[in-house]
Design a protein around this nucleic acid. Sequence first.
RNA 1: GGGCGCGUCGCACAGCAUGGACCAGUGCCCCGGAUUCCUAAUCCGGUUGACGUGGGUUCAAAUCCCACCGCGCCCGCCA
Length: 581
Amino acid sequence: MAPVVEALLHALSGVPGADRAAIERLLDTAGGTGWDLAIPVHRFAAAAKKAPNDFATELAASLPDTPGVARRFAVGAYVNFEADPAWLAERTLAMVTALGDRYGCAAPTGRTVCVEHTSANPNAPFHIGRVRNALLGDTLARIERAAGHTVTTQYYVDDIGRQSAMVTWIWSKPREAWPPEIAATLEGGAETEERADHWLGRPYPAVAAYVKSHPEAAAELGELGDRLERGEDLPAHRRFCEAILGGMLESLRRVHVTFDEFVWESSLIHDGSVDAVIGRLRSAPHFVREENGALAIDTKSYGLPKEDERAVFLRGNGTSLYPTRDVAYHLQKFGRFERVVDVLGQDHLLHARTLEALLAEIGESRRPEFLLYQYITLPGGGRMSTRKGTVVWLDTLLDEAIDRARAEVVRRHPELPAGEAEQIAVAVASGAIRYHIVRVAADKAVAFQWEDALSFEGRSGPFVQYAYARATSLLRKAEAEGVATSAAPKGTELSTPGERDLLRVLARFPSVVAAAARTAHVHSIAGYGHDLAEAFNRFYQSTPVLKSDSERASRLALVAASRQVLANTLEMLGLERLDRM
RNA sequence: GGGCGCGUCGCACAGCAUGGACCAGUGCCCCGGAUUCCUAAUCCGGUUGACGUGGGUUCAAAUCCCACCGCGCCCGCCA
C-alpha cells in the first residue's frame, strides 16, 4: 500500500487537496471487484476542474511503475491497482513465517494499559448476563497486548456495602435463626457437593427480598455494612467473599478468563486513600453540604442528566459511597498505568460521567477510557437479575454446551479415548460460548437464545477451530509421509482463486488487529476469524495439497501459514486450538 | 420530562469512526447438490431486502445533519 500512496502522491502533485492523508483515506481495498486497491478520484478531478472519468484515465496512465503492482487502470471515476499475485503471495508467506506468533502484532510500544473488567460482586455464581463484561474485557486485553502495549487486567472486588454484606449477614447467623423463607432456599442442595459460590449464593435472592419487607433486618444489614466499612467484622466477611469469588473465578477459568490482579474495595478505605479523596472533595470548587451532614458536589456545570444535579460522596452518617471509592481506585490506577480502560455496562454511563466530574473537581486531569456494552437479556426480554433469581448460570450453559459437544465428538470419532473426547468437547463448548458473545458489537443488546449460543456451525467458534484442526491434521499427515514444506514457496504456484483469496485474507490480519485496538471493536476480530476460516475451508475443499505434484511444497507452506494465522486469531479470541476435532 | 444507546432479508448479525464502485455482506432457517480423494463441525448452487419514517447536505448517503417513531437502559445518602 505504501508504494501506491507514494506513486499517487507523485502523480497528483499540484492537485489541490491531494495530500498524503486524503490519499490514504480514500485508498481502500476494493470490495468484491477483485482488484486489490482502488481510489475514487471525484474529489481530485473537481479540484483539477476535469471530468472524473477522464481524470481517472489520465491518472492511471501517468502513474509510475510500483513494485508489487501488476496492473493499474481506470474504471469510471476509479483507479484500480491489481497486485502482482505472486509478489503478494511470497511477501505474505515470508512475513507470516518470519513473525510466527507475532504476526499481526505491533512492535512493543512500552505503554502500560490497565484493563479493568468483570468486577462482579462476590455474592452469587457467575451468570451469563455478566459474562459479556468478562469476555469483552479479556478479549480487549488480548488485543491491546497484540497492539504492543503492556497490559494488566484488574478485577475490582466489591467487599463493601449492603449487597456484599447480605451473604455474610445470613451465613453468620445460626441456621436455626434463619427466617423460614430464606432457609427454604437451601432445601435440595448439599453443602458438600456444590461449589462454594453456588452453595453460599443460594439464599442471596431470598435475603434481598426479605430485607425489603423487614425493616429490622434491613437495619441490621445496614449496620453490618457500616461496620465493614469501618474495618470491623472484616475477616469473617472476607472469608465469605473469597469463597464465593473463588467459585466465580472457576467459572471464568472454564472460558479462559483470568486476571493479573485483584483490588479489594475495602483496601482503599483502610489504606486511607478514600479519606484522602474525601478531603480533596471537601475543598473542591463545587462542594456543598446537605442538611443532614451529607457531603456532595454540585454537578450543574457538568451537565449530568441527574434531576437533583448533585453527587453525594459522603453519607450523613459519615460513610463513603461507591463513586467516592471509585475515585480513589482510579487515582491508584493513574499512578501506575498510562492508560486506564474500564469495561462497563451501559447502565453505568451516568456513574462514569459522575466519576469524571469528581475527578475534575479534585483537579485530576486524567480520565479512564470506557468500553460500554449493552446487556444480555432473557429470551423473552428483560434483565437477568441475581436478586430476582432470573438468571442462567454460566456453569449451566457450559455444562449443556459440553454435553452437546461430547455427543458430536463421539458420533464423529467413536474410536477416540474418552479422555480425549472430553477434552475436545470442553474446548469446543467454551469456544462456542466465547465466540457467540464476542462476535456482536458491544453496543448491541443481545437476547440470550440457547440454540444460538450452542451453535457449532457457521459463524461460530468451532468453525474457526475446525479450520485450524484441518490445517494441523494436513500438516501432520505431510510430516508422517515425509513430504517437505517449501521454505521459499513460489507465488506462481499459488494462483488458483481459492489460494489468492486465502492469501489476501492472511495479508489483512495486521491491519485488522490494529483497527480493532484503535476502535476497541472486539467483535471485528471474531469477524476476521470467520473470514479466515471460510477462506481456508474453500481452499481446502477445492485444492488438493498432498495429492498435488509440482505445487505441493508451496501449498503446504500456504497451509502452514494459514495454520499460524488461525492460531494467532484463536489466541486473540481466547479459543483453544485443537489438533483434531 | 431529561440523557445515552440501538433500529439493516423470516430470525440473528456485519458494514456507519474516515460518505465513494453497496442495485448492501455473513450466519441460521428453507430447497437442491458434493464424501472410492488431505476431517462433511465443511463446501457448491438456489430463494429472501422500502438499510425505522420524513426532510437536509453532497457529484455521491446504510454511513453525515435535523425532526419524528419504536425498543432498551439510566436519572438513589444502591452498586
